[in-house]
Amino acid sequence: MVERTRFNDSDCPVARSVDTIGDWWSLLIVRDAFDGSRRFGEFQRGLGVAKNILAARLRSLVAAGVLDTVPASDGSAYQEYVLTPKGQGLFPVIVALRQWGEQNLFAPGEPHSEMVDRRQGRPLRALEVRSADGRRLDADDTAVNKVG
């Protein structure tokens, strides 16, 4: 089997991020954690992923500090998975992927799930990238200062 290329020591933040959460199962696990899944069985039922793959991804996300394990809230012998502050920081990433998918992967009028403001029940405004002074930025307005 070919060994996976690792980017955990790259000087690029995107490469390091992809190394940690870039496979689809990990992102879907994080999505489901935001939606309230906490137990192995909940993730497995919701995703339909093989148990060995799910176990490996959960271990990886815990090792990376994205998820933590805590005793089950019902006092049983099970453990639950909760997002750490590092994992909570992925919320804008999940929203951005959702909004990109809504704009680009559905036909007009095609039904899909929708994220709404819990208090108002209304769809979220599209995410925007802003400069330090508040200006809206597009890709042409930015540059990457590379190391070395």
Rank of each mutant, 00 (worst) to 15 (best):
M1K: 14
R4S: 02
T5P: 06
R6L: 07
R6M: 13
N8L: 02
D9K: 13
C12W: 15
C12S: 14
C12A: 11
C12F: 13
C12R: 15
S17F: 01
V18P: 08
I21S: 10
I21W: 11
G22H: 10
W25G: 00
S26T: 02
S26P: 00
L27M: 10
L28M: 02
I29E: 05
R31M: 10
D32C: 06
D32E: 13
G36D: 00
S37V: 02
R38A: 11
R38I: 06
R39V: 06
R39S: 05
G41Q: 12
R45P: 00
G46R: 11
A50G: 05
K51P: 14
I53S: 13
A56P: 01
R57Y: 10
S60Q: 15
S60H: 15
L61V: 13
V62T: 14
V62G: 13
G65D: 12
G65V: 07
G65P: 03
L67A: 09
D68C: 05
D68S: 13
T69N: 06
T69M: 10
A72K: 04
A72E: 05
A77H: 11
Q79N: 12
G87E: 14
G89C: 08
V93T: 15
I94W: 08
I94D: 05
L97P: 06
G101H: 02
G101K: 04
G101C: 12
E102N: 04
L105K: 00
P108M: 09
H112M: 02
S113P: 04
G121P: 09
A126S: 09
A126D: 03
L127P: 05
V129K: 14
R130T: 14
A132Y: 03
G134I: 11
R135D: 11
R135F: 03
R136A: 14
L137Q: 07
A139V: 11
D140Y: 10
V144Q: 04
V144W: 09
K146R: 13
V147C: 02
G148A: 07
